[in-house]
Amino acid sequence: MFAQQLANGLVLGCTYALFALGFTLMFGVLKVLNLTYGFYCTAGALVALAVAGIPGATLWLALPAGALAAGGLAVVVDTLLLMPLRRVRAPELSALMVTVGAVLLLTSLLSMGLGTEIRRFPPGMLGTGTGGAVVLGPVRLAWSQVLIIATTGLLVGALLALLHGSRLGLAIRAVAGNEDAARLMGVSVARTMALVSFLSGVMGGAAGVLLGLNFNAIQPYMGESMMLHGFAVVIVGGLGNIRGALLAGVLLGVTEVMVAGYVDSALKDGVAFALMMLVLWLRPAGLGGRVVAPRV
């Protein structure tokens, strides 16, 4: 029983970690708290759902399609809304406000266009029917859960390899560290930022598809409710800190499942906020630790 709960928590934590990873990457490099990020998650899931509706399409087509579409959307939103503000070096809060407005605009339009009912992936989407599962001792993992762990591992590995093992990654880390210095070193800051937007969008979109699989429920507000978890994860892990986000994502998933299983399922939705406030009071730099107060 406990091992099964732990496994379920781990799976949930993987989706949180993947979701928060894109969010924290975006903040770390672009220095903008982008609230439309939750919408990328919804968009990814919806595109995957549309692709899955095509006869003969499998999840192996739907998942990348959803993720890539979300990445593209992220680049469009960043170019239209945030680039102009960056150009005039507008204050941090202006960028945040634009994304606040944009997320309300996009989500309301979407729910007006599609309705708010819950949509589901067609049964048998995973090619193995609904009964397939992997049994490891006392733990039983459904195929969708295995897929979630594998996809998260793959995407996180790829991102870390890109960031730490390639020239593009070096450029991204340079822009994150000091935009002006990176520009002087010949890094194309605009192109690097677009790349980061794309990568974050891909992470958010993939997380949306996986969440849709995990709960088998897709609706226009799913991204919005994910944002709260995303916030908690990036604050607990330290804003802009990738390893912290991974750790905190898994921690949040496991804690939520444990609270729901052993304490009271009604308290589950409060776990994210409680963890976040606890960290803000006790260790505001997050578990990863980074200076967050404005420095003189």
Partner: peptide, 29 residues
């Protein structure tokens, strides 16, 4: 006060994040 005291020592995004979270958690309550 509970939300503002820890977040206002930090940069501006923290208050925004914590206050969005507050709205969601109160709805659950």
């Amino acid at each position: 006060a509970v939300i503002g005291i820890p977040t206002l020592r930090l940069t501006g995004v923290y208050l925004a994040i914590a206050t969005i979270g507050l709205g969601e958690v109160l709805r659950v309550v």
